[in-house]
């Protein structure tokens, strides 16, 4: 996936979302080693300190952990990934439902439309 970083909101948050999406979708597998900060920063064309901050944030969430000498890895905890993925889904659904409501489409309408297609 190309990085598509925008300049109008914190870059580190966008990196966190990007890597999260890669993990949720399986583009990066659980237990897989991440590239180095330098390589990731060059690939995303962002400042290495910003990349570092994003990885630290992912560590704080628990999606990523570091081994003292060999770099950073994606968690092996599939349950955690599933839980975070569900949280993300709900978050996105909420936004979507609000938008639909705004144009006068109720949850029932949506279910009907989804099932008929």
């Amino acid at each position: 996936m190309p990085w598509n970083i925008e300049s109008d909101r914190p870059v580190y948050l966008q990196i966190v979302e990007h890597i999260m999406n890669d993990i949720f979708s399986g583009r990066i597998k659980t237990g897989e080693q991440l590239k180095s900060v330098r390589d990731l920063a060059t690939e995303a064309a962002v400042n290495p300190n910003t990349m570092q901050k994003a990885l630290q944030e992912l560590e704080r969430i628990g999606l990523v952990y570091s081994r003292r000498t060999s770099g950073r890895y994606v968690t092996e905890d599939a349950e955690l990934v599933k839980k975070l993925k569900e949280e993300k889904t709900l978050e996105q659904l909420k936004i979507f439902l609000e938008r639909m409501e705004n144009i006068g489409i109720s949850k029932q309408d949506l279910i009907r439309i989804l099932e008929s297609k």
Binding site: E6, S7, D8, P10, V11, Y12, L13, K53
Partner: peptide, 15 residues
Amino acid sequence: NVDDIREKEGKSIDA
């Protein structure tokens, strides 16, 4: 710090 500024101002450094 650029991200602090983006967070606080809600806009890009360019803007």
